[in-house]
Design a protein around this nucleic acid. Structure first.
Ligand SMILES: NC(=O)c1ccc[n+]([C@@H]2O[C@H](COP(=O)([O-])OP(=O)(O)OC[C@H]3O[C@@H](n4cnc5c(N)ncnc54)[C@H](O)[C@@H]3O)[C@@H](O)[C@H]2O)c1
Ligand SMILES: NC(=O)c1ccc[n+]([C@@H]2O[C@H](COP(=O)([O-])OP(=O)(O)OC[C@H]3O[C@@H](n4cnc5c(N)ncnc54)[C@H](O)[C@@H]3O)[C@@H](O)[C@H]2O)c1
Lengths: 224, 224
DNA sequence: AACCGCTTGTGAACGTAAGAACAAAGTCGA
DNA sequence: TCGACTTTGTTCTTACGTTCACAAGCGGTT
């Protein structure tokens, strides 16, 4: 019955590991040495059984009767997420959103190095950005190849996203973070994650709609 | 065995409805009249059976042997998501990211009206933003209450997020979109969605890490 | 009207994830 | 050294989500 291979971490768990990592970094900063699953789960906003199960995929890290060594756990999670080596990234499309992303220090502090910011607009190319400069999109491939870039961030309009994606993939990028509202087609070996902000608001809208009709009543409003 | 109430749409489905809606809007613009589940699924990047099941929660909309009426389906999804009425929103924290969000026309075009942009920084208050002005955070409650705001967007630093959240909730906001890397505590009747961009990169990093060790082999590199 | 080809809507099988509950395994005090 | 106590790691159950496969239903054609 579908025994999970050791080292195979469920997708849902991976997403939460990133959250635990952030919480643990906060605890390290606060000089906390030991934390129990109950405490950590409370801070991370999850069920403690779920947290323990998540951590169990990384091996047996805690001490029964005591809890988890904060520093050790943080390192273990970081290494599971492949964060022991810095990852190089490029950003394509330095408009409104691209500027915000480029100016965010949280990426670098978490081990992500942006080695290039690209735009097609000649009016923007050369502009300073995050102690670097906006490069022309024509330089994309050479920068990606020279730096072994593995992650590409797309913040262009939707129409350009697939073209940009194809170029990134051809140049060797194997992970894409897409902010454009479009579905990207990629080869099997490439991972895509999308951030669809309008969709987020629409999902909230759905729940608002549901709430406003009263929770769980079968009342159908004005049919016919 | 847990029969699903009519009108109860699974969470995973709701998230995809937003995607279908966007695709359908594109089809309407392209004057497409009818679309089959196969076509629509291909564009939306999902399995066609999944798409049909998703749509089946909205009732029987398609015509067997033919497909779905694009306009009708679009309207049906929009109404299910509660997008027939415009939703009013406020944005708190008009820094890097907040500016990008405020300048984005895609929210308004999808039925979300921002009625206030708030910041605590006196140096920013009064600055023009998206044919409006940045307001002082002290005006938050009055604007929320006066406009019946249901959605609050938080783009402040993590430290301020919980405080801002509490104020939004107290003022009557029942849905929160949180960009700050922090876990928000809210009452049961309030929905929170978080957008954690650093976590997205870390998830991609995980898969990079996994890929670089070869897909699925049990090989452990350089232990000891 | 009867048939044919096509596409929907759904029931059943499968897979993944969440949560409850508890045995195992450790610490600490006597 | 022993026993009481605490918290982990895991098993088992239940819920949720995805995919397959096909009967049901519709439009067009003869
Ligand atoms: N700004 C937001 O808050 C927001 C919210 C939701 C979604 N988005 C999406 O994010 C994307 C970017 O949004 P934005 O507000 O920054 O838009 P923007 O128009 O301000 O910026 C887009 C940038 O991409 C550049 N560009 C266009 N084609 C390109 C190409 N082929 N190669 C390289 N660069 C190219 C443009 O020159 C421009 O600088 C859009 O797809 C938008 O729909 C943005
Ligand atoms: N910029 C990005 O690309 C990015 C990426 C990932 C996460 N984030 C997160 O999004 C949030 C905003 O990021 P940013 O880059 O815009 O930061 P920023 O510092 O540029 O902007 C934060 C704004 O919030 C305001 N603020 C602070 N406390 C406030 C309060 N109590 N009430 C109202 N306003 C307050 C500040 O005056 C400032 O204008 C942060 O939590 C950040 O971690 C941003």
């Amino acid at each position: 019955m579908s025994e999970r291979r050791p080292g195979e971490i469920p997708e849902a768990t991976v997403a939460r590991l990133a959250v635990y990592l952030r919480v643990l970094t906060g605890l390290v900063d606060a000089s906390t040495v030991i934390v129990s699953s109950e405490e950590l789960a409370a801070i991370a906003g999850v069920n403690s059984a779920k947290l323990r199960k998540d951590l169990s995929y990384l091996g047996s890290i805690g001490t029964r009767g005591v809890g988890y060594d904060v520093t050790l756990l943080r390192e273990k999670i970081a290494s599971s997420l492949g964060l022991t080596q810095r990852r190089t990234c490029v950003l394509v499309g330095v408009g409104n959103l691209g500027h915000a992303l480029a100016g965010y220090p949280g990426f670098s502090s978490r081990g992500f190095t942006f080695v290039g910011y690209f735009d097609v607009d000649p009016g923007r190319v050369g502009d300073p950005i995050a102690d670097s400069k906006i490069s022309d999109i024509s330089e994309l491939e050479s920068v990606v190849e020279a730096n072994g870039v593995s992650i590409g961030v797309i913040a262009t309009p939707a129409e350009a996203a697939q073209t940009v994606c194809d170029r990134l993939v051809d140049a060797g990028v194997t992970s894409i973070l897409n902010f454009a509202p479009s579905v990207l087609a990629v080869p099997d070996n490439v991972d895509v994650r999308k951030v669809d902000l309008a969709a987020e608001l629409q999902i909230l809208s759905f729940h608002e709609h549901r709430k406003s009709r009263g929770p769980g009543d079968g009342l159908v409003e004005s049919v016919g």
